[in-house]
Amino acid sequence: MMKRINKKTILLSGAAFALTASLSVGSAFAYFTTYANSKGTVPVKMGFTETVPQEKVDQDGKHVTIKNTGKYDCYVRVKVFADIAVTYQGGADWTQGDGDYWYYGSILPAGGETPELLVSYSYPDTEVENPTEEFNIIVVQECTPVVYDDNGDPKPDWNHVITTQQD
């Protein structure tokens, strides 16, 4: 007589197999891994500053300084328009360059002030003959933001200038 396999036997056998087989499953797919991450943001605040020319006049001429009253660093340059011949004394800080401007060589930081550029002149002989004649000496100063080239070196951008004029 053929023996029928008991249903309970099959179930118990299956359960036993599943239990024993499951013991080895975990380690097959478990790798040691970890991670860490971090994030940061920085605002890019760019702007054009404001500069104010300051002049004192005495017997030696016009003593010109430029003050950066804005929030951003800048470069500055000065040009003088006069009916009479003038000479300049600015030491190593000021050099004459393109367009007959006098360039302050360093970055003028926000809140900073340049050293003095002395603009000297002598009255022509006609002044003695006609003391009422007036001579205008006009100082024009310009500022431009500091930009950096591909090597990371600072340079002026004279394509964008803000001009201030004083008679």
């Binding site: 890019v44 500091v146 930009v147 950096y148 990371g152």
Partner: peptide
């Protein structure tokens, strides 16, 4: 300090 474009 403000960040300046181009500066490293």
């Amino acid at each position: 300090e403000n960040l300046i474009p181009g500066k490293k």
